[in-house]
Simulated assay, not measured.
Amino acid sequence: MSKRPLVLLDVDGVLNPARRHTLRLRHHECVVDGRTYRVLLNARHGPKLTALARDTGAELAWATTWEQHANVEIGPRIGLPELPVIAVNSDPGTRAGEHFKTRHVAEYVAGRPFVWFDDNLGTHDWQYLKDHPGVDEFLLVDVDPRTGLTDRHLTQAREWLAGRATPDLDGAGAASP
């Protein structure tokens, strides 16, 4: 089983901020289950996230209610390849005030360290993940939904991931930082 760290991506509020069109953000129309959604996306996010994953040995994955639709409607528009998807829409309830996606993320990570970019996480999510037996080290990056993902968020993730032990990618053994 891989111990590569994960970088988990939300769409709405993170890659699709709630703001007006700018030079970096472009409007796109996405069709999901017959409904049309207007989203704002920054084409620079894909290469920056790909570089983050490559440089830190991490694996990108979707943690969004868009689920598999993110691979069809979001990823190609910002230059991301098809990514693994965490199914989060099956159980919208909470147990201790955590976001409904948090339990699904805790099950998915299976002991792997992870960074989670989301705009809707808080103390209950942190506590739930900290107490969950299948969760190792993690960093929750709180993204302001008005501005979306910024270089500051990416730097925060890069620095945190750089502080983790190098994953065993080639079978030669893990090195210390």
Rank of each mutant, 00 (worst) to 15 (best):
M1H: 11
M1R: 09
S2G: 09
K3W: 08
R4P: 03
V11I: 13
D12W: 06
G13S: 10
G13C: 10
R24Q: 14
R24V: 05
R26P: 03
E29Q: 04
E29L: 06
E29S: 04
G34H: 02
G34K: 04
R35S: 13
T36L: 06
Y37S: 03
L40G: 10
L41R: 05
N42S: 02
A43N: 02
T50W: 11
A53L: 07
R54S: 13
A61T: 08
H69L: 00
H69Q: 03
A70M: 08
N71D: 02
G79A: 01
I86Q: 03
S90Y: 06
P92K: 05
P92Y: 02
P92M: 13
A96G: 15
V105L: 06
V105D: 03
A106V: 07
V109M: 08
V109Y: 11
A110F: 03
G111V: 03
R112P: 05
R112D: 02
D131W: 07
G134W: 01
F138G: 09
L140R: 04
V143I: 10
D144Q: 07
G148S: 08
G148A: 09
L149E: 08
D151A: 11
H153R: 09
H153S: 10
T155V: 15
R158A: 05
E159G: 02
E159P: 09
A162R: 10
G163Q: 12
A165T: 11
T166Q: 06
P167Y: 02
L169H: 09
D170F: 11
A174D: 01
S176H: 14
S176A: 15
